[in-house]
Simulated assay, not measured.
Amino acid sequence: MKDSSSLLEITWTDPVTGTKGFVVIDTLVRGLASGGLRLRKGCTLEEVRGLAQGMTRKEAVVYDPQDRYVPLGGGKGGIDVDPADPEAVAVLTRFLAAVRPVVREQWTTGEDFGLRQETIDKVAADLGMASTVEAVFATIDDVPAARQRLAEAFAVHVGGISLGDLVGGYGVARAATGAARHLGLEPGESTAVVQGFGSIGGAAARYLVEQGVRVVAVADREGLIRDDAGLDVEALLAARDGAGVIDRSRLGAGVRLGDRDAWLDVPCDLLVPAAMSYVIGPDDVDRITARVVVEGANMPTLPEAERLLGERGVPVVPDFLANVMTNAWWWWVVFGDVAPTEESSYAKIDAVMARLVATVFADSTATGTSLRSCALELAARHTAAVTERVGITG
Rank of each mutant, 00 (worst) to 15 (best):
A145Q: 14
V143I: 05
R250C: 05
G223M: 10
V245P: 00
H157N: 14
G184S: 10
V233K: 05
R240G: 00
Y170K: 10
G169C: 13
G223H: 06
Q148H: 13
K122W: 10
E222N: 15
A192T: 02
R248F: 13
L163I: 02
A235Y: 04
A235E: 02
V245Q: 04
S199M: 13
G178N: 08
V158H: 04
V193Y: 01
R147P: 00
A145W: 11
S199W: 14
A135Y: 03
A138F: 10
V218S: 10
G244T: 06
V209N: 06
G160H: 12
V233W: 07
A217P: 04
V143F: 02
L237G: 02
G230V: 02
K122T: 11
A204T: 13
D220G: 07
T177Y: 11
Q211P: 03
V172P: 00
M129E: 07
S249I: 02
A151R: 14
V193C: 03
L251G: 06
F137P: 03
I140V: 12
R214N: 07
I225C: 02
V255L: 08
A180W: 02
G196F: 00
L185G: 03
G171W: 06
R214A: 03
G242R: 15
Q148S: 13
A229C: 08
Y170A: 00
G223V: 09
S199F: 12
A125E: 14
V218P: 12
L257Y: 14
R181N: 01
T177L: 08
V143H: 09
V194F: 08
G169D: 13
A192Y: 02
E234F: 08
D247A: 11
G184H: 05
E234G: 07
A217K: 07
E222M: 12
I246E: 04
D126A: 13
D232N: 14
G230E: 07
F154M: 13
A239E: 11
H157C: 09
Q211C: 05
A192R: 01
F154Q: 14
A179M: 09
T139C: 05
Q148A: 12
L185N: 04
G178P: 01
A138D: 13
L185S: 08
G188K: 15
A238Q: 14
V233I: 15
A124G: 00
A125W: 14
L251P: 11
V215N: 10
I161K: 12
E134R: 14
L251Y: 04
A253Q: 12
A204S: 14
A173D: 00
V213L: 06
G196S: 02
R149I: 02
G171Q: 06
R147Q: 04
Q195D: 09
A239I: 07
A155M: 11
G212Q: 12
G198I: 05
A151C: 02
L183I: 06
G168Y: 07
T191K: 10
A179W: 09
V136S: 08
Q148T: 13
A173N: 03
G196P: 00
L237C: 10
D232L: 01
A138P: 06
A217N: 04
V215Q: 03
V215L: 09
V255F: 12
F137D: 01
R221H: 14
